[in-house]
Design a protein around this nucleic acid. Structure first.
Length: 266
DNA sequence: GTCCAGGTTAGCC
DNA sequence: GGCTAACATGGA
């Protein structure tokens, strides 16, 4: 465990607890997670302490984004101002696209604790155990592609078992997730929408949380409520969000989402 | 028992 | 293209 003094704001609690990633656990102040097959431990106390190197922190927590610049770009009204003030240090994460894709297929018509439970069960059932015995890797596309439906079902997936299996088969057969990183927003989204279990909202989550598309604006029930109540009752939330907030609409989206979901008042 | 949760899909018009 | 019912699961 060593100390890193970051030049960028980072609030671990807001960031890891905001529903963009599902495998981190807070054990009395210390965050534990498994990223790309590596067990990682983090906590904040006059600097960020971690069992990883600074390059990992920079990559994973997008410290290459100038958060203050981004915040000033999206600080356009009193609603947004409340959210960014209350959640200062909330950052988007640059997570693995494959894990992100499957996690958000599991997220549809579901709640966060259960998403976490399903993802963890998938890892325990189909993922490689870490050499340190501290948990399991996220399963490979091949592992989920070859998984029998009834075993997937026992992981708690419900009717989503087919979505996970077919999407895993598509990725195992060569669907190039990483290529989407360099595509324009509409084109990358169109490609993702081909995958079973991936609709407008899940596609935007994958683009935003794992493929560097900061203009993606995922529209779930919380965001739709925010847009209709606070901004305009009759617009398409996604179109409005991207146009109104601009190139960093995705950051605005996640601040609104987490503020609304954590049951704070506007 | 009823309701709800980061939606997607198939089947209609 | 837009609209709607159906969809497993577990916790409140």
């Amino acid at each position: 465990m060593h100390t890193v003094h970051l030049s960028q704001p980072l609030n671990l609690h807001h960031t890891l607890n905001s529903g963009q990633v599902f495998r981190w656990q807070n054990l009395n102040g210390t965050w534990e997670g498994i990223v790309r097959g590596e067990f990682i431990r983090l906590f904040e106390n006059e600097g960020t302490h971690c069992t990883c190197d600074e390059n990992f922190l920079t990559w994973y927590f997008r410290l290459d984004d100038d958060l203050d610049l981004i915040i000033s770009a999206i600080d356009k009204d009193r609603h947004m101002h409340k959210a960014i003030t209350a959640l200062y240090g909330l950052r988007l994460i640059r997570q693995d696209p494959w894990e992100c894709l499957i996690s958000f297929i599991c997220s549809s018509f579901n709640n966060v604790p259960r998403i976490r439970q399903i993802v963890e069960t998938l890892c325990r059932t189909f993922g490689r155990p870490l050499p340190s015995h501290r948990g399991y890797e996220f399963p490979s596309p091949e592992a989920l592609a070859d998984a029998p439906l009834d075993v997937l079902r026992t992981c708690g997936l419900g009717y989503r078992d087919v979505y996970v299996q077919k999407t895993a088969q598509a990725v195992a057969d060569g669907f190039a997730l990483h290529d989407l990183r360099t595509m324009p927003y509409q084109e990358a989204k169109k490609a993702l929408l081909q995958l079973p279990g991936v609709g407008q909202k899940v596609a935007d989550c994958v683009l935003l949380f794992s493929l560097d598309n900061l203009e993606a604006f995922p529209c779930d029930t919380h965001i739709k409520a925010c847009i209709t109540q606070l901004y305009s009752p009759s617009v398409d939330a996604g179109t409005f969000g991207r146009q109104y907030f601009g190139p960093y609409a995705g950051y605005a989206n996640h601040y609104l989402f987490h503020y609304h979901r954590s049951n704070r008042t506007w």
